[in-house]
Amino acid sequence: MNAITHHSPDSLLAAFAAGVLEHPFALVVASHISMCLDCRATFEAHLAIGGAVLESGATAVLSSDLKGATLSQLDHPVTPRPEYGRKGIFPSPVVEALKGQTPRWKSLGMGARQSILSQGSEGSVRLLYIPPGQAVPDHSHNGMELTLVLQGSFSDSTGRFGVGDLEVADHSLEHSPKADDGAACICLAATDAPLRFAALLPRLLQPLFRI
């Protein structure tokens, strides 16, 4: 059993608890919390502070009929939103992003694959599959990048990352990650800017491959 050694910084957990993280990052942090009891505890502590803020904040006068209207709806039937559980290596937030399906992998060349879960103005989040021993194509970032290991492990200039480990990288890091030998490395990776892969593809092709 390998223990998680790379955790989420406190500020990310606070931002996640307060609900201000962009969707791609929120998905990665929710997934790390799903795998890490320590960060779950910290996250719940932030919720407790949020609760204290709610509890000690100013009240607002309610419309006179709000209570009655609410009480009268207690028995109304509701269709619950579908709930997804963990599936294999994927924690439930990832399974939900996949809508319960298996990932649809697209080749990145040299055996590497990706499956984009979402992308838009807030950034992108995707699953990466890197064959054992292979380098993730050299890249640098414009903004923040979060990478959570779901299977296997990778190593870079900052250390070794195994299942459950979370790497936080910013634009100052040129880290050249490489999948370790053994099982293929599968990661959940989010970024708020398009990645620039230097080695693998000419920049012109990037829109085509959406990397």
Partner: peptide, 14 residues
């Protein structure tokens, strides 16, 4: 695990 206020805080933010 949680105070009522913390639990409701989370629901409200969500």
């Amino acid at each position: 695990r949680a105070q009522v206020s913390a639990w409701i805080y989370q629901i409200a933010r969500n």
